[in-house]
């Protein structure tokens, strides 16, 4: 099972480290990362494997969200299927 994590916010040192720290603690494997910075807006999209995640997707989403808030970031964690169904025929 795979999920998509999007991180949007003001660029700062250590954003990827913070997010991957949460993922490592919950045994979530990062499959792909795409990241860009427009002026000082940071936007990152991660595809992760959650099949061996130690917590449920809902809880992972909450944890990431809370960690994001402390850094002024908006983090969405959503099941991959939502994007596949909306954007693929």
């Amino acid at each position: 099972m795979r999920a998509v994590i999007t991180v949007i916010g003001k660029d700062a040192v250590g954003i990827i480290a913070e997010v991957s720290d949460v993922l490592r603690k919950h045994n979530v494997n990062i499959l792909d990362i795409s990241q860009s910075v427009f002026t000082d807006l940071f936007a990152m999209v991660m595809l992760v494997d959650i099949s061996k995640c130690t917590v449920g997707l809902a809880q992972l989403s909450d944890t990431l969200n809370e960690r994001g808030k402390t850094m002024g970031l908006t983090i969405h964690t959503m099941h991959e299927d939502i994007f596949n169904s909306m954007h693929r025929i």
């Binding site: 998509v4 999007t6 499959l31 792909d32 795409s34 936007a43 999209v45 595809l47 969405h76 959503m78 991959e80 939502i82 994007f83 596949n84 909306m86 954007h87």
Partner: peptide, 12 residues
């Protein structure tokens, strides 16, 4: 991988 544009469109 999924297209970044599509993902951001859904979130928007």
């Amino acid at each position: 991988m999924l297209n970044t544009f599509d993902i951001l469109e859904t979130i928007k």
